[in-house]
Design a protein around this nucleic acid. Sequence first.
RNA 1: GCCCCCGUAGCCCAAUGGCAGAGGCAGGCCCCUUAAAAGGGCCCCAGUGUGGGUUCGAGUCCCACCGGGGGCACCA
Length: 969
Amino acid sequence: MSQAPVSNPAVDLDIPPHRYTAALAGRIEQTWQDRWAAEGTFAAPNPVGELSDGFAERANERPKLFVNDMFPYPSGEGLHVGHPLGYIGTDVYSRYMRMRGHNVLHTMGFDAFGLPAEQFAVQTGQHPRVTTEQNIVTIRRQLRRLGLDHDTRRSVSTMDPDYYKWTQWIFKQIFASFYDGDSDRALPIEALVAELDAGTRQPEPGTNPYGVAWPDLTARQRNSVVDAHRLAYVSEAPVNWCPGLGTVLSNEEVTADGRSERGNFPVFRRPLRQWKMRITAYAERLLTDLDVLEWPESIKLMQRNWIGRSIGAIISFKSALPIGKAPSIEVFTTRPDTLFGATYLVLAPEHALVEELTAAEWPLGISASWRGDRGSPADAVAAYQKFASRRSELERQTDQRVKSGVFLGTYATNPATGDRIPIFIADYVLTGYGTGAIMAVPGQDERDWEFAEAYDLPIVRTVAPPDGFEGKAFTGAGPAINSANDFLDLNGMAVAEAKAAMLGWLVGGGHGEARTTYRLRDWLFSRQRYWGEPFPIVYPVDGEDVDRPIAVPDEALPVLLPDVEDYSPRTFPDDDVTSEPEAPLARATEWLSVELDLGDGVRTYRRETNTMPNWAGSCWYELRYLDPRNETVFCDPAIEKYWMGPREDGDSGGVDLYVGGAEHAVLHLLYARFWHKVLFDLGHVSSSEPFRRLVNQGMLQAPAYTDARGMYVDASRVESRVGGFYYDDAAVRQEFGKIGKSLKNMITPDDIFADYGADTFRLYEMFTGPLDQSRPWDPKAVIGMLRLLQRLWRLVIDEQTGEVRVSQHPVDSASLPILHRVIEGVRGGMESLRFNIAIARVTELVNHATQAYAGRPVPRDLVGPLVLMIAPLAPHIAEELWSRLGHPESLARTDFPLADPRYLVDERVQIAVQVNGKLRGSVGVPADADAAAMEAAARQDPNVIVHLEGAQVRRVISVPGKLVNFVLG
RNA sequence: GCCCCCGUAGCCCAAUGGCAGAGGCAGGCCCCUUAAAAGGGCCCCAGUGUGGGUUCGAGUCCCACCGGGGGCACCA
């Protein structure tokens, strides 16, 4: 590597030949990027295995640190200036911590599967792999140009078969497991089968629909029962079908107004046979383990809300059907105390008991509204079910929540009152929550009140509203009323007390039990798309186990994504409710059918044609970074333990610092926690959480401009003049918004590299505020950081000769306290991720040195620490100056400067003197002056004497080193 | 409708409950320059969104409201 000084070509005679310009910065930066790559400066050694070279020198006896960014989706536009905000933040932090002696792992990969790549590929007619690979090349170049300290050996891409082989392997692990409620963890499915065979365990409720016990089931039935316990399973259930995208979506991918998060298409609920992951089994652990994570409270709150724990009771209502078959209806309620006010029941339209509970004909005297104007209950129910299924979530919103439903013609008995109450179906009750059925208590529930008003049902208050209450349903706290029978009297009790009393009575009488439910639903895991991981699943085409999903053996992994003629998904008109999903892989006719010997001879199987959602690859990528080339295991346990293992008892372990956008609060971050916990339960990882500490970087907003018509104009062509902004001499209006094509305000890092260099760019992005705060990108303010680097450069390098101009003299005594205070401040800023403060401190020192040593060389002992302090922020210029100061080695592992405490305390300080809290003077005292000495000094101040004149001093507040306050009485 | 975060100079941002300003941009003046500026220096600029409260003392803690941003929303 050439160490010949780089200088400016003599193009402009007026600029000093060795001034730090953007052009010079660019040459320095690329030189150092080459050198870092050639020397493997940022290679983080593993304790064992292929990447363990250098562990003894670089890692042994040192603490480790695993810093990770949410990896990017490689879109066609490359990066804009908003993307690197977090990447630079983790880079500064990891460089700082490396200088603090840590073995730091920092790398970057690509979340390469997903919808946009597929859509882009369809548009351009190229294979998504080709376009995605091109995009990755572009982004890798941009990341390198930023000077990030990535260990590039560890980069992964989720579309790489060597990577998705292990995504499929983890899927198999999940598929081969069930959740054991007794030990509260996932266990291998074999353990379940063994216990069922031994009779020490019964199938979970709802998993054995055959009406006979396990020993009497046929082999096929047993398979079905076992499969229903798996953590990854196939089920026929209402799901989010999005005709506009041609695929089903998970709940997390549907917005509150019933549209797809991507593309904003309407979403419909309809029953389809799909793969799901039993994330609900982990609801409680996903909730409680949030407590130990160092995450932003807002993100924890969003996850808590999403998981949505409700504590309440299951209550059983007997139906009044004719002799023989009278099923009980189980409802979930958080307010068992209001049971005396339950005047009707409501089932979701899709509830499993609806058919059974539908009467043959209407009882006498039923009003037309209850009957839905139909001749028979069966007609009314069928019509209503059809109506409900055809309504998109969006329509349900826009209907202003007008309540609708029909009567089944059947009654149930309120176990507390013994009253006969009607059973309805209505779409305000949701299938997937609780038991899909409710007891309606209009007196204490607004929704039930509205329905009761619409259908003229009785309303009984069981909680006394306060005097003067004029509302309808009363949902607040108050004493119970109208709540007594021969065996139970709740009247007068407060809500909590009444709940407990009611629950005791319900349990004693066999009418119900305590129950906690969660809003979280199982994760819909299959997609009808091409560009994703194929499932490692096949189905026998004939025989006893026909159509049973079977995992292919590990040796058959990866199941490669086949090439198909047409990888575009089959999409439909947005509102085509009746359309059916159609997987592109079903067109790969040769791939579809496979001959395998899975232990019972060679047979023919058909492959699963759904693909995994693009969240799958990001559920575990941080683990693959640790051991990216391992061909026998997804990650060596010893390596995982080293980088991610718990630090002490009770610690979750996980990535030490994870930085990314808040938009993944309940998608990626919840799914990744779930997968990680399964891997933990099965003994594959030692950490129980993937990300110990999370920081959300803020969003960068850039100026955008609208013309008189309100249309966005190209921001790069807008000129700023006195009195406003102009585009082609026409006045335009400035606003700030998300950077991107739609606002025509794209700014790419490449532009900034060319105009200022990467170090200036890095400094600017870190300077505008704390990492977690959103801020505007002000194109005109970038120059300030270039000026800073120019001043720093001038302290070390003579702009005319290019010679190093530092002196060997000691730092003068006036500069020492400043130097050490700055060191202290920079450390504080680095550690709290408030790099803006670190930069301000460095600027202070640069400005001080510039003035204090104007016209004479700056001492080496001042410049050295200065260069090291700016190194994490502006690593290229720091390396260059460090090298020119005579150090042959990279500064990446040089100790970060440490403040000498002797210089942090002043000998004398100015303290404020207040009288009644108002500033009246200022006096100098020795820094270690005690309260009495400070008070004595304060009393000497002429202005203070005036204010104390003739007054009674009631109290004196003395804060050492800060102030004295006289409180007059 | 409910929940969370944020309001400090023209702008971006600092300030363990203790003298509101560290740093940068913009603006003004000066130096360097034939000239210019992406060079250097100096200067100007707010009483902390509003109203209460706690305190000797509040930008900081508490309450209410206003403004901005985000999340959730028929979840029993």
